[in-house]
Amino acid sequence: MKAFELLFTSDVGLMSLTVLTITLGMGAFYLRYFLKHIKDDGAAAARQSR
């Protein structure tokens, strides 16, 4: 419990929490972005091969 107290109350802990949040958000964004473009490219290739 001391670790959570340090994470949410100290300057270093809050900065770490901010960096983790931004990193996870970027990971989710890029995952959705890449999967969407993979799907679109696959659909375009299927249309082109007909």
Rank of each mutant, 00 (worst) to 15 (best):
S49N: 07
F29W: 10
R50T: 10
K2H: 11
T23Q: 07
S16L: 15
G13E: 00
F29R: 03
F34H: 11
M26V: 15
A3V: 04
V19E: 13
T9V: 03
F29E: 02
S10F: 01
A45W: 09
F8H: 10
D40I: 00
L14S: 06
L20S: 06
A3T: 03
T9M: 04
I22A: 12
H37F: 10
L31S: 06
Q48L: 14
Q48Y: 10
G42E: 12
I38F: 08
S49V: 09
M15I: 12
H37N: 13
K2M: 03
K2Y: 11
H37D: 05
K39V: 04
K2A: 01
T18Y: 11
T23S: 10
G25R: 03
A43K: 13
F29M: 05
K39M: 05
F34N: 12
L24P: 00
A3N: 05
G25L: 02
A45G: 04
F8W: 07
F8T: 12
G25F: 00
A44L: 15
L35K: 06
L17M: 07
S49G: 06
A45E: 14
T21G: 07
V12D: 02
A3K: 04
K36D: 08
M26G: 14
T23F: 07
G27Y: 13
L35P: 01
Y30S: 15
S49E: 08
V19D: 08
L24S: 04
D41Y: 11
T18W: 12
A28C: 06
L14H: 09
L20P: 00
F8V: 08
R47S: 10
A44Y: 14
M1V: 02
Y33Q: 08
Y30F: 15
L24A: 05
F4N: 01
R32H: 12
K2I: 01
R47P: 03
I38L: 06
S16D: 05
L7E: 00
F8S: 09
A45M: 13
E5G: 03
T9G: 02
R32E: 13
L17P: 00
H37C: 02
D11Q: 10
G25S: 05
S10N: 00
K39D: 03
A44V: 09
L17D: 02
M1G: 09
A43D: 09
S10C: 02
F29D: 01
K39R: 03
V19F: 13
M15L: 14
F8L: 09
L17E: 03
